[in-house]
Structures are given as structure tokens and as C-alpha cells.
Design a protein around this nucleic acid. Sequence first.
DNA 1: GAAGCCATGGGATACGGTTTCCGTGAGGCA
DNA 2: TGCCTCACGGAAACCGTATCCCATGGCTTC
Lengths: 362, 362
Amino acid sequence: MSQRKASGDAGRATIRDVAERAGVSVASVSRVLSGNYPVSEDLRRRVMKVVRDLDYVTNAHARSLAGGGTPTVAILINNITGAAFAHVARGVEGAATLRGWLSLVGTTGDDPERELALVNLMRQQGVAAVVLLGGAYDYDEYQLRMARFARSLDAAGSHLVLVGRPPLEGDVPATTVDYDNEGGAYAMASHLLSAGHRRVLVLPGHSELTTAQGRLRGAQRAFEAYGVPLETGLVRHGPYDYEHGYEAVEAALAETPDFTAVLAGTDVVAAGAMQALRAAGLRVPEDVSIVGYDDIPLASQLTPQLTTVHVPYEEMGRVALRAVADRREGGGGRRRGSDGDHLVLGTHVVVRNSVRPPRLRD
Amino acid sequence: MSQRKASGDAGRATIRDVAERAGVSVASVSRVLSGNYPVSEDLRRRVMKVVRDLDYVTNAHARSLAGGGTPTVAILINNITGAAFAHVARGVEGAATLRGWLSLVGTTGDDPERELALVNLMRQQGVAAVVLLGGAYDYDEYQLRMARFARSLDAAGSHLVLVGRPPLEGDVPATTVDYDNEGGAYAMASHLLSAGHRRVLVLPGHSELTTAQGRLRGAQRAFEAYGVPLETGLVRHGPYDYEHGYEAVEAALAETPDFTAVLAGTDVVAAGAMQALRAAGLRVPEDVSIVGYDDIPLASQLTPQLTTVHVPYEEMGRVALRAVADRREGGGGRRRGSDGDHLVLGTHVVVRNSVRPPRLRD
DNA sequence: GAAGCCATGGGATACGGTTTCCGTGAGGCA
DNA sequence: TGCCTCACGGAAACCGTATCCCATGGCTTC
């Protein structure tokens, strides 16, 4: 009685159960199912019937242990509810599905501990790649940390992909998919400047976030190009959220109320800024112009619709997955440091209705 | 030379490599790592040193094949960029992480084929549970399809969880986590009615979507309770998106322009409706009131901030995971059809600034 | 001082597939 | 008719880990 399983067993059916019931060998069942070996039509029919009867599916763990198995990509994200990240995730997931790959997802909540734990967890899972989403904090430790991740994953036959953050320095086995962050900010600021705005409230984001740094740099370059000084008193740092946009505008209205436009680091920040302006009795765009960054759906759902910078988030996700898939098929023998390790996608300004030439206020 | 692996091997290190290098048996390494068996301090130190040197992590596939392994929950979602779904996903993922569980995610894109493929894929992965997110289309086939999924997963030792849709009929091994959809709509409609609105444009959603049906039913009940007829000419069905909200209001303004409020099936639909009203020169809420449903962040980011129905999406996700975790620990021997199989969470109206008493228009 | 016990470590086996290596039967050609 | 080849089925060796069972050594106890 301690044989194999009892017959009326509740657990899942094994390939042996199928073989036995079909009166064939285990190998034959495997061959029918993987289809990489010629089998007679009769055998195939017999096996498939039992498979349907038993509602059998192969055990993915056993399969990948034995060599086969579905490639899996891990998506690590700060906050799954951020619209931008969600779009990248969709790009990755969509492209993965297209190739029959699986997607694991984990959220780090900006916690380095959790990030480390997740990377290790994904390493255990033997994922083909780990995709890290979102801007990074530019601490000294960061570079070392990522380099360690990259090498660790590389040694395990996996691969690190950074999306939406600057590439790692030195000879690190990682791929970066980035967008022209600074260029977008340059174009956006130029748009405001060419409309005649000179005193612009800038809300770039956290000063230590790489994306915020790039956006601020782009704006600065545009101001320089126009020969307009970017007053430091009109630059306010803070998190990429609605509350920050609201409060920053409130504070600015109290301290330096003579700005005629707001250059927000994010569409969500722009939404907060817009609300605060309205609360103060100012109209958008008649009294104050506003622009955002990201071009998430919110941008076109606000009234007025927001002029903003389009970032190809979903495309970035697709590109990221394609990069790892190619590398995996190409035998991974690519030399490091080659161009394929750093992909940059373009951004562009989307003009909607939130910008007008400035007009004097009382 | 055809022994095991070459020493300078590029693949990941195995437990045997660790054992060999530490001069102990494989069993000892396993015991040190899982920590469920007494080992001497000396042994632990020796093993851990080698583990660090080799940067070894256990192979999750082998582990789960051998009996151990991290439980995994699969989240199946129509569209990952929907804010509501994202919040449920966050709830599930957060609760999963808290317990050391892993989260797989897949998007179905409303395609039954893909849904089936994903359920099977998840079955192969041996997931502890499959969580299906979002409203369902009330076709005849649906009940059968879900019942088949439920039994199939149940037979494989997994479990189906439906979130945000009505429970399955009959004796089906599935858990449902739902919210008081109809009650929320009833309260929301009552809010408008008690403000004095009588002619209300209702945009419930697709007529075959279960959530839309519930929201319409709730509104109807409220109108009945107030003794006000709900005119069918003022009910317009359509998808839950911004464009539908916009177009429905445009059409209504052309055909039946005497409504004083809009009861939107979703916050996003409300955003579209709001935009269309503005485009027609109407003010919100002075000329027309608007209410939404879902209470996604967008609702409070619009101007004016939207009065809407709060749905505890994230909480639902947490509850869903807790349900499967409990069932798994409780030995799964629960009788079916008991109360634990259908959980309903409450909804409530969140009053913001998008409703005013009606006033006559020209 | 000897016997028994507890604390540890090691060897073997099972988990569920894939795949290689053979064996065997059928069919073609001389 | 006999031999060789081709095509497919079956047995067994892994994949990497957990765990059961047993051996061994030191220590307690009589």
C-alpha cells in the first residue's frame, strides 16, 4: 500500500499516470507533449485523449529542472500603482507573453532591503532576466549595489536590465533601456520660453532622483539657450506626487507669486499644481500656464488637457524584453560595453491646451 | 573528464558544489540553509562561508519539486494599466510578500483564449491560487467556463479566487471577494436625488458587464425609492473609458440636453464627461453636477474634485490573499458553500466638490 | 568502567520530467 | 528469401533539493 499514490488521489496527475492509463511508456508521453520527436498518429491520439481525460498539465518545476521550461522575466517596481511604471510593466509583460515567457512581479516600495531580497528570490527562480523599473536615487552606494546585482545575476545565467535610469559605470554585465529625459525637459522648457514665459516655477522632483536631475538639467540648458536666468528661488524640490504639486504652488504663491508658468516634473505633480492655482482663484491657462512630464492618461483627462512630454513607457518595456530575448538567443557571447547594452528612446512634446502666452497679473 | 561539471563552470552553483567545498554532506548544507534541523555552530559557519563565497542560492524549482518551495499566487488581470486593477494587484502582492509568497502576473486583454492559456500556465507552475481580477461579461458561457477553471485548479491542489465579480452559481470550489457594488450605486444616486436632481444622465458601462449591471440596478432602486422615473433615454451604455464619457455627454447634449447631473459608471468616464461639458461651455458643478465610481486617485486630482463611491480595491486584494492563505493553512478541508467562500466588502460615498443642487439652464 | 542516550552528520531515495541509448519490429532492396 | 536500414517504443540516467533512516561519537548515569 505504500506503493505510489492511492488511485483516487487528490494531488495532480503525473506523466506516469498518463503513461499507465494510455498503456504506453513515460517517454512516449513526454515526446507527444513536447512534440520534438516523431510519433505515430495513433500514439498521439491515444495519449492526448488521456491527457484531456485527466486534465493533465506538466509540472513546470520538474520540466525546468530537467532542462526545458518556460523562460521567466521578473519585473521589479517601486510602486505598482504609478501609471508610468504600469505602462512599462505592460510593455514587458506583453512582449514576454508574445514569446511564451512568464512574468513575475515584485514591488520594492523604495526599500533597499526588499530590493535585495527580491533580486535573490528571482535568482532562485532562475529567471532569464530581472527588469528594474524607475528612477534611482543617486547615492554613492547605488552604483556598487547595482554592479553587485548585475554580476550576481550574470553568474547565475540571468541578466539585469535597468529601465528608466542611467546606465551603470564601468564594465558591468547589465543592459540599460533609457529615454531622452534631459532632451524632453529641454524641449518642454523651450516650449514655455518660446511662448514668452520668463518667470517659471520649476518642480523637478527629488533632488537625488536621477530622473529629476535630468529634467532639471534639461530645463537649465533651455534657459541658458534663451539667455534667461533660471532663478533658484523658483525651483522647488519634492516627491513626484499630487500633494507636492499642490503645496509647492501654495508656497510659491505666498513667497514668489510673480511666476507665469509651472514646469512640473510629472503629470501628477502638474495636476496638484493646477488644483492649487484654481484654489487660489487663478485660471489655467489664462492666468498661469502649466506643463507636465510623462504623458500618462491623466494628462489628457485633466481640464484643460495638459501639454506634456511624451515618454514611450510601453515601448521601453517591449524593448527591454526584446533585448534580453535577443541576447539569450544570440548565445549571450556578445562583448560587453558594446552599443547593445545601452538603448535610448526618444521623447517629444505633446502640445495640448495648458499653455498660453503670459499675461500680467495684479 | 565527463564527470560532473568543469570546475570553472559558468552555470549556477549547486548544493553539491557547496557541500564539496565545505567538506560536508549535501544533507548538511540543506539543513543549514533551511534551518529546520539542529546543526552545530561550527558546521553552520563553515557552510555559510562557502555559500557567501560562491554567492549560492537554492534552485527554487528543485526545491518545490522536492516538496518545499515558496507558495506562489497568480494575478490575472484584463489590463494592468487600469488604476482599479492596479490597486487590487498591489493589495494581493503586498499581502503575498508579507507572507513570503511570490506573485506571478498575467494580462488577458479580455481574450478568453489567453485567459485559458494563462490558467493552464499557472496550473503548470503549481500556484497556490489564481486570482482573477475585474468585472466579467455575463454571457451564458461564462459560468461554465469559470466552473471548469475552478474544478481544474482545485483538482491540482490550487484554488480559484474571483475578485470584483459576482460569485459562481452551484457547488463550485472557488472563493469570491466582492464589494457592495449595487449598494454603492444606490447611495451615490440617492446623493444626487437628495440634492434635488431629477433628470440625471446615467452612464453605467457596458450592458453585459456584471459591474455595470449592478451599478445600474443600484441607481434604479434609488430612483424608485425617491419615486422618480429613470428615463431610459438618459441611460447610455458604453465602455469604461474616457472617450465614452466624452462622447456620451456630447450625444446627450445634442438629443436630451435637459439633464442636470451625470452619474458616471467610473471615475474615468466621469473625467471624459466633465471634459465634454466644459467643451460645451457648461461649468461643473455650477451648471451640471457629476459623480463617479471607484475613487481612484484621478477622482481627487480632477478640478473640481470628484464626488464618487469609494471601493476598497487594495483591501480586496489583501482579503483575497488572506482567504487563500487561511484555507491553505486550515487544511483546505472546509466545507464548500460556507460563508467563507463569498466575502463582501462595503462601499461608501466620498463627498467632494462636483455636486451642487440643480439650477435651471436656458 | 560499562551501558544507554542524545545530539549530529552522512547516505540514499523520492519529487516529476526530459533525454540518451538501445532494442525491436517492419519494410525495402538485392 | 535474407539482410540492412529506418522508425519508433522502452529502460534508465540525470536535473537539484529535502528528508528519512541509520551510523557514530561524546556524554550522562548507574
